[in-house]
Design a protein around this nucleic acid. Sequence first.
RNA 1: GGUCCCAUCGUCUAGGGGUUAGGACGCCAGGUUUUCAUCCUGGUAACAGGGGUUCGAAUCCCCUUGGGACUGCCA
Length: 475
Amino acid sequence: MKYNTRFAPSPTGLAHVGNIRTALFDYLAAKSTGGKFFLRIEDTDRERFVPEAVDYIHQALDWLGLKSDGEVVYQSKRLAMYQGKVRELLDKDLAYKCFCTKERLDDLRQSQEKIGKPPIYDRRCLGLTKTEIREKEEKGESFVIRFRIPNAPEEIFWHDKVRGRVTIATDILEDFIILKSDGWPTYNLAHIIDDYEMGINLVVRGEEFVPSTPKYILVYRAFGWEPPEYAHMPLTLGKDHKKLSKRHGDTAILDYKEKGYLAETMINFLVLLGWNPGGGSTEEFFSLEELKEKFRIEDVNKAPAIFDLERLDWMNGVYIRNLSVKDLTDRLVEFDPSYQKVDREFLERVATVEQSRLKTLSEFKEISDFYFDLTKYEASLLTFKKSTPEATRKGLEASLTELKGNEWGNVEDFESILSKTVNKNQLTNADVYWPVRVALSGKDKSPSPAELLWVLGKDESLKRLLVALNKHIVD
RNA sequence: GGUCCCAUCGUCUAGGGGUUAGGACGCCAGGUUUUCAUCCUGGUAACAGGGGUUCGAAUCCCCUUGGGACUGCCA
């Protein structure tokens, strides 16, 4: 079965990781079956519309490589179509005009809740005669259009691709609004017309839509259309076990790009929130391409998943370590264009030795500052706890001598020069390796001295060693 | 309140009648090592509770509990 799916965000805020995970599942449900993946912007709520949100969605999908097929659909451009469909429903007596004011509706709701009844519209306007309707219209009273739930109660059910059979009775459903008083359709109507019109045959969306799905099935029936299949995804929860939203902070998807997480990490991490290959497999690294092969919407879990940053950090570290040096360097430059000014070969060397220490691209700047500009450090740092000032001085001097007299080559060469220095002068590793490393990095934690020598090169290294020696003697 | 959904280590999860309940993150310990990171080894930690069904339930059924979603002229 080829599934055509759509990602249908409403541009009322910046897309967060939960939204994008749904987009990913939509994308994979389509691509894994050879179907198409569409993007539709649900911008019928003009009050909450956030202009930059649309661009944000495009950037996010671009970043992750979730390319949509065909033209992007904007609901705001299809008003005439929706209104035409509403007229159809009105003509068939399957919908009606409701002139009830907000105040009345609020009162009604409150009094219903007070006596412990579910808040359901009392259908007062369903009883309006043609003349009454005409009078109200002539007086310019504003109205909405409600869908008329069939009188005969029944159980609506569907076979959800992830939840199995779901049943909900229609007697708890109210005559919901399909056209607002401003003339715009609500989600309740617009998405159905669009899905039908766009040939969507599998709706992949968040679990929050489960309770309202029966309403939509009724609308399909009113139009005489076959409903699509449904796959309601488990929710993505924050650490507080509540549906992910802005108030959790740090959830806007592109924040992760800015923090230096890789697109492939996000894809991999997000897909694992609710999906795994099953069958006893312990595999957990998947590229988008692999996912297109292996993903099955039926394998998605029912239980919600919590978004856990620690696991994300670990995974990003793994992805960074698996990058070739060239690739890593490219990404560092892309992440921070100021590195374009840095000598490429030098930058690649820095990337080579720091790669295993990176969890995110953004950490690179801080972790690598000393290569470009030696940081200030205390002279006392030069002496390791297992060494003495005297031995440290000897170690520094001997290293300087050996280093000057030898050819400069690769990391292994420096390794042997250093170990030769230790042996020749009856010193210990602590007398040589530590002070050389501190001299070159100014830090108590850094890559090995051999690596630092290789990165910094002869002139800079000898300069730093000399500085260290003077510092040490003065101290 | 009502309707619906969900339930395996703290987290992501495998397992769907017979398993020492497996893997991963995290954490802890050890190894490698001049330091840090990486890497390697080991450890910690879970079937929410109660009833059934069955020779045998983490697995199937029911109830309870817990959690969540929905209950908008938002989507």
